[in-house]
Amino acid sequence: MAAGGDHGSPDSYRSPLASRYASPEMCFVFSDRYKFRTWRQLWLWLAEAEQTLGLPITDEQIQEMKSNLENIDFKMAAEEEKRLRHDVMAHVHTFGHCCPKAAGIIHLGATSCYVGDNTDLIILRNALDLLLPKLARVISRLADFAKERASLPTLGFTHFQPAQLTTVGKRCCLWIQDLCMDLQNLKRVRDDLRFRGVKGTTGTQASFLQLFEGDDHKVEQLDKMVTEKAGFKRAFIITGQTYTRKVDIEVLSVLASLGASVHKICTDIRLLANLKEMEEPFEKQQIGSSAMPYKRNPMRSERCCSLARHLMTLVMDPLQTASVQWFERTLDDSANRRICLAEAFLTADTILNTLQNISEGLVVYPKVIERRIRQELPFMATENIIMAMVKAGGSRQDCHEKIRVLSQQAASVVKQEGGDNDLIERIQVDAYFSPIHSQLDHLLDPSSFTGRASQQVQRFLEEEVYPLLKPYESVMKVKAELCL
């Protein structure tokens, strides 16, 4: 049975990233139509530049190519590739079939990587351009969430054990800070992308030097003109047959890092959902379990974690691919890159769409948070109580021993009897502590235990987050809708 299948058929496997999760716009960027249309555009740009620099290419040939950029006979191309065992030459023939007058000058002087690699770089750039505003929107939604809850005390956790208090907004800023680093890295790697350009079979530009009869300047002009037509500021000066596969490492490393950030955020949300302090959106008709109707599973956060793990592992592909590119190139890269580049971007696209949807509907339960604080705060307040007693004339050592005994009794009630923490009640009825009984409410005010959390939130948002989001103001209103 021949390899390949009808990918629109229910009898043929289709990647869930495309069929179930990723956005239509990201799927289109990695589609065959987008790819092969870009090949034709690159052939047109090459012909236009070659004509401008004096090669015998007519206006009629150029116009014929322009008129057929979208006229792609995919069936013919597939048949040609089956016959020739070469995808680029299959599309040269297919393009030439609908451009008979231009057929002889299509791909003039070029090698397969002229269309293959340059198209990949265009796709990487455009895919990054799709991700950047999506990530900015996630940051914006979380920034709104953090600002609104900047002063809401909550129990902090280290080692997932109760620690000092923080605020809900401050905790959210930990998430935002990681995503801001990801946004900066995505922008950097996007701006650092260079075009492969017009380089020939081993990167020496020998074929173009021959076409222009040894004119170095025209060869350099050709490279520059096509690079500018493709919208790049610069091209690699040095290439082998391909652009260095280190570029793929750079791009997928940034995406993998984004995956790590999203995994951490969504894990926190899942843990908070278990504590009943916070939940992701839950639709009115949504079913959490087929057997347990009360369940409210954090399905979206779980999906993000599941896909983020996949995204983090994909960076190993370009690392290994770059390491086995012998001399000017081997074909070890080809099949692998067809999979890992598309999957990385479709996965990143999915987790950003999902995280935006989550961040637009996060639900906080202040009463649950308050109750958990009441359970733990008495123990945390013991040092403040000791200091207040010393100020009232008591002995630190005597007070410490009193607190120690009462704390152990209260802990026994919590752990052995399943009761509430009654340390404060014990202190309130103990005559030894009568000098500070009137101060206990103040000493137990949760806001006095959150330090500068709310001020940190305000400063972080104003100095770091809002300036970073400013270039994306025009796209901030787009909502994230999930079908599944």
Score class of each variant (00 low, 15 high):
Ser9Asn: 12
Ser12Trp: 12
Arg14Glu: 14
Arg14Gln: 14
Leu17Glu: 00
Ala18Trp: 13
Ala22Leu: 15
Glu25Arg: 15
Ser31Cys: 03
Asp32Pro: 06
Thr38Asn: 00
Ala47Leu: 05
Glu50Asn: 10
Gln51Val: 05
Thr58Tyr: 12
Glu60Arg: 07
Met65Lys: 05
Lys66Met: 15
Lys66Gly: 01
Ser67Val: 05
Asn71Lys: 05
Ile72Ser: 04
Glu79Gln: 07
Lys82Gln: 10
Arg83Leu: 08
Arg83Ile: 11
His86Tyr: 15
Lys101Phe: 11
Ala103Cys: 04
Cys113Met: 01
Asp117Val: 07
Asp117Trp: 07
Asn118Trp: 01
Ile123Val: 10
Ala127Pro: 15
Leu131Arg: 11
Arg137His: 07
Ser140Met: 05
Leu142Pro: 04
Asp144Leu: 10
Asp144Val: 10
Phe145Ile: 13
Lys147Asp: 10
Gly156Val: 09
Phe160Trp: 00
Gln184Thr: 06
Gln184Arg: 05
Lys187Ile: 11
Gly203Pro: 00
Phe208Glu: 09
Phe208Met: 09
Gln210Thr: 09
Asp215Lys: 15
Asp216Thr: 11
Asp223Gln: 15
Lys224Trp: 00
Met225Asn: 02
Ile238Met: 07
Tyr243Met: 10
Glu250Val: 03
Leu252Met: 13
Cys266Thr: 00
Ala273Leu: 09
Lys276Val: 06
Ala291Tyr: 11
Asn297Asp: 10
Pro298Ser: 14
Cys305Val: 02
His310Met: 03
Asp317Arg: 06
Val324Trp: 05
Arg337Leu: 10
Leu341Phe: 07
Leu341Ile: 09
Ala344Thr: 01
Phe345Val: 10
Ala348Asn: 13
Ile358Gly: 04
Ser359Thr: 09
Glu360His: 14
Pro366Met: 03
Lys367Ala: 13
Val368Leu: 07
Glu370Lys: 02
Pro378Glu: 13
Met387Trp: 03
Ser395Lys: 08
Arg396Thr: 10
His400Pro: 07
Val405Pro: 02
Leu406Gly: 10
Val413Trp: 13
Gln416Ile: 15
Ile424Asp: 10
Gln428Ile: 12
Val429Met: 14
Leu440Ala: 08
Leu444Val: 05
Thr450Asn: 10
Gln455Val: 11
Gln456Met: 11
Val457Arg: 15
Glu463Gly: 09
Val465Asp: 12
Leu469Pro: 10
Ser474Pro: 08
Val478Gly: 12
Ala480Asn: 14
Leu484Ile: 15
